[in-house]
C-alpha cells in the first residue's frame, strides 16, 4: 500500500516544481496609460496597443528566462523560439486577463476594448478571433496553473525553422508537457483528456497570432502608427 502513496507524492513533487516556478515567474500586468491629451482615434488606439506590446515584450523576454530549461538552450535557440512565439504569448496573456469579461478584451487593466472600440481601431475581426479563444478557455474553466503551462508550451513549441539543437528543444517540450499531464492527473482526475484538450487549443492560438502579426505588419507598412524598436524587430523577424 506504500507504492501508490509514494507515486502520488512523486507526481505532486514533480508537477509542483515546474508549475510553481512558472507561477512565481509570471509577470505583473502592466498599464497601457493612453495619452489623455490626445483625442480618441484609430491611430491613438493602435499607438497605445503597440506601445503596450513593446513593454509587454520586454517583460515576457524576462519571463522566458525563468522557464525551467529555457536558459540552458543556446542563445540562438532562445532567440529563435521567441521570434516565432512572441505573439502567441502576448495573445494568451490578453486572453487569460479577459476570462472574467463578457465580449471584452483586457489588453491592460486600464485598457479594455469592447466591440465598439474594436471597430474604431480597425481591430474588429482580430479581436473577434481572440474572443473565440476566450470563449474556448472560459468553457473549459482554464486555471492559472494551466495558463502558465500552456504559455510556456506555446513558446517551446513555436516551430521555428532556425533551431540548432532540436533535441534540447524537444527535451524542454517534454518537461513542460509532462508537467501539464501531471498537473491534470492530480487536479482533474475526472477528465483524463483535459491535457489533450488544452493542447488542442494551440492551433487556434497559432492561427490568431499569425493574423495579428499580419495585421500589425500592414499597419507598420502604412507608417502612420509609431512603433518601438523591439516590437518592430520582432515583427520583422516574422516577415
Amino acid at each position: 500500500s506504500g507504492l501508490p502513496q509514494k507515486k502520488t507524492f512523486f507526481v505532486d513533487a514533480v508537477e509542483n516544481k515546474v508549475v510553481s516556478l512558472l507561477l512565481v515567474a509570471e509577470p505583473e500586468s502592466i498599464f497601457a496609460m493612453p495619452d489623455p491629451t490626445v483625442p480618441e482615434s484609430d491611430i491613438k488606439a493602435l499607438t497605445t496597443l503597440c506601445d503596450l506590446a513593446d513593454r509587454e515584450l520586454v517583460v515576457n523576454i524576462g519571463w522566458a528566462k525563468h522557464i525551467p530549461g529555457f536558459p540552458t538552450l543556446s542563445l540562438a535557440d532562445q532567440m529563435s523560439l521567441l521570434q516565432s512565439g512572441w505573439m502567441e504569448i502576448l495573445i494568451l496573456r490578453v486572453v487569460f486577463r479577459s476570462l472574467t469579461m463578457e465580449d471584452k478584451l483586457v489588453y491592460a487593466e486600464d485598457y479594455i476594448m469592447d466591440e465598439e472600440q474594436s471597430k474604431l481601431a480597425g481591430l474588429f475581426d482580430l479581436n473577434n478571433a481572440i474572443l473565440q479563444l476566450v470563449k474556448k478557455y472560459k468553457s473549459m474553466g482554464l486555471e492559472k496553473e494551466e495558463f502558465v503551462l500552456l504559455k510556456a508550451i506555446a513558446l517551446a513549441n513555436s516551430d521555428s525553422m532556425q533551431i540548432e539543437d532540436s533535441e534540447a528543444v524537444q527535451r524542454l517540450q517534454d518537461v513542460l508537457h509532462g508537467a501539464l499531464q501531471d498537473y491534470e492527473a492530480a487536479h482533474h482526475p475526472e477528465d483524463c483528456r483535459r491535457a489533450g484538450k488544452l493542447i488542442m487549443t494551440l492551433p487556434l492560438l497559432r492561427q490568431t497570432a499569425a493574423r495579428a502579426v499580419q495585421h500589425f505588419c500592414s499597419i507598420k507598412q502604412d507608417g502612420r502608427v509609431p512603433m518601438h524598436k523591439l516590437f518592430l524587430e520582432l515583427l520583422e523577424a516574422k516577415v
Partner: peptide, 20 residues
C-alpha cells in the same frame, strides 16, 4: 543575428531589462 540586436541584448542581460 545583427538584425535582432534588442532581443539578443535582453536575453543576454541577466539582471534587469536594458533601458530601451
Amino acid at each position: 543575428k545583427e538584425k535582432h540586436k534588442i532581443l539578443h541584448q535582453l536575453l543576454q542581460n541577466s539582471t534587469s531589462p536594458v533601458d530601451l
